[in-house]
Every structure is written in C-alpha cells, then in structure tokens.
C-alpha cells in the first residue's frame, strides 16, 4: 500500500516524502520518538503544502486531490491493488524491490489514466462550460486521451457539448 500511495501522491504533484509508513512496537518508545522527530524535521524542511490561508475549494491541488479521491473510491484501482497483493502471497516474496517493481508494472498506468479521467469529469463539472483545449492544458496530458475520456462521458450522458464547450448535465 505504501508504494501505491506514493505513486498516487507523485501523480498529483505532492512530494511522496510527505507520507510515511513505519513500524514501532509497544516497547519501542525511544524508536517512536526518533521516527516522529525525523518525520517532523522532514516536513519542516519540505515546507507547507499549501499557501497560508489553508484549503480553498478551487485551488489546483484540491482539484487533483479530489480527482484522486474519486479514482480511489472506484473499483478499478482497488481491485488492482487487491490482485497485486494476491500475487505477492502466491510467490511469497514481499521484498521492497518486488513490491516496487510490481506496482510499477501493473498499476502505474491505471493510476495515471484513472486520475486523469476523474479529473476531466471533475473539471467539467466545476469549471464548465469549458473548451476541450483549455481542459487538456489544465490537466496536462495529451489531447487524444482527454478526448477519449470526454467521448465516454458524453456516451453515458454525463457531459454535453454546446457551441464547442463542454458542460456537465444536471
């Protein structure tokens, strides 16, 4: 899961060092203190994630985060991760390298497309009516990919096109 989350954070432009998963047993108070101190120092050196003033609904980071959120709620990435862990169990290999390789091989691509797809819909809902070129520029992926996502949304009736601009239905 650690590697999976790191990939997602990297995809939406958050330094993956902002997330850490560590182990300390109940008897390891001093180790815990060291882990927390190191992590706090690391975050301090990375600086604040957002501008002072905190969370605003429309900032770019928030849209990316919400896109990742809706991508994670859906079955595709969750089953992907579940199937991956099944594979580790079968082979009995849980080394960091193995996990890294497998996540790279099996999930990186679908993490990318799922988040982009959800971001496309989210932006049409929030910022529509919007021209497809603006959409492509903001998401920062190739136009053909965005067109593909939009075509699927139009087919499902989630998005309509009027005067060359896209808006969400309802």
């Amino acid at each position: 899961m650690e590697e999976f989350v790191r990939k997602i954070l990297a995809k939406i432009g958050i330094d993956s060092d902002r997330f850490v998963l560590k182990w300390a047993s109940a008897a390891e108070g001093p180790r815990f203190v060291k882990l927390i101190t190191d992590f706090t120092d690391r975050i301090k050196s990375l600086g604040p994630l957002r501008e002072p003033g905190g969370v605003s609904k429309d900032d770019e980071l928030q849209i990316k985060l919400l896109a990742a959120r809706s991508a994670l709620e859906k079955a595709k990435l969750r089953t992907g991760l579940g199937n991956l862990t099944k594979g580790f169990r079968k082979e009995g290999d849980y080394s960091d390298q193995q996990i890294k390789d497998k996540v790279n091989e099996k999930l990186t691509k679908s993490i990318g497309t799922e988040i982009d797809r959800n971001e496309t819909l989210l932006r049409i809902q929030k910022q529509g009516p919007i021209a497809i070129d603006d959409l492509t520029e903001k998401i920062g992926v190739s136009g053909t990919d965005v067109e593909k996502y939009v075509a699927a949304f139009r087919k499902k009736g989630l998005v309509v096109k009027a005067e060359g601009r896209l808006s969400a239905t309802k």
Partner: peptide, 25 residues
C-alpha cells in the same frame, strides 16, 4: 489495527489541509 488503513484516508488527510501523514504500525 493499521490493517484498516486505506489509501483514501491519506488522500482525505491531504484534502483537509495536513502537511504530512505518518502511519505507525
């Protein structure tokens, strides 16, 4: 149990404005 951890929790944490997430098992 940290086995209850879900990638969603971490994304949610960043959504509401944390600067870092520490998971300790």
């Amino acid at each position: 149990c940290t086995g209850r951890m879900d990638p969603l929790f971490i994304i949610d944490a960043f959504c509401v404005g944390t600067d870092g997430v520490f998971v300790g098992g």
